[in-house]
Amino acid sequence: MRLFPIAAALTLAACGTAQSTQYFVLPDSQYIRPATHGSEIAVKVNLAEPLANGGLVYQTDAYHVNLAKNHLWAAPLDGALAANLSNKLNRLNPHRTFVPASRSQSSQTLKIYIEAFQGSYQGQTTISGYAQWPDGR
């Protein structure tokens, strides 16, 4: 009976322990300038509000998302996505050079709007958005 108060105190103390912060890196998020040089296009990523806070986002049901406080991106998500997409576009199109907007001097900008980028209660990753080419398409 004497051990019960001690066990209860230890259990409550464990609940109050702060969770350590973990940082995550988006794959292929280090920009690599291609060897071939075509006309340069800046890649600018615009994030929906919940994605711009630095934390990972998890959809808990059909209508709610949870913004992580202890699971954060190691670098700003918009910049990491701009580098990732620039790398992928450069591998697909050798006639143009895609460069993250923060590193580009080009007046030609490919605007990418990311509306969702989150894990889901259904065990899937949800990514959605759209792009606008410099000519408005």
Rank of each mutant, 00 (worst) to 15 (best):
M1D: 10
R2T: 00
L3A: 02
L3M: 05
L3D: 02
F4G: 07
F4N: 02
P5I: 00
I6Y: 00
A7S: 11
A7K: 07
A8K: 06
A14C: 14
C15Q: 14
G16H: 14
T17Y: 15
A18W: 15
Q19R: 10
Q19D: 10
Q22H: 05
V25P: 07
V25Y: 12
Y31H: 05
P34K: 07
P34D: 13
P34Y: 14
T36V: 14
T36K: 11
H37F: 08
S39Q: 03
S39E: 11
E40M: 03
V43Y: 03
K44F: 06
V45I: 03
V45Q: 02
N46Q: 15
A48P: 06
A52Q: 05
G55W: 03
V57K: 04
V57Q: 01
D61W: 15
L67P: 04
A68N: 00
K69E: 15
K69H: 13
K69T: 10
N70S: 04
A74T: 05
G79M: 04
A82F: 09
A83Q: 10
N84K: 13
L85F: 08
S86D: 12
S86I: 05
S86M: 08
S86V: 01
K88C: 14
L89M: 10
L89N: 08
N90I: 09
R91F: 14
R91L: 15
H95Y: 12
H95E: 15
R96P: 12
R96M: 11
T97C: 04
P100Q: 07
A101K: 01
R103V: 04
S104P: 04
S104H: 02
Q108W: 09
L110E: 02
L110R: 05
L110Y: 11
K111C: 03
K111I: 08
Y113D: 03
Y113E: 11
I114S: 06
F117G: 04
Y121S: 09
Y121L: 11
G123I: 15
Q124A: 13
T126P: 12
S128Q: 06
Y130Q: 08
Y130D: 10
Q132H: 08
P134T: 08
G136W: 11
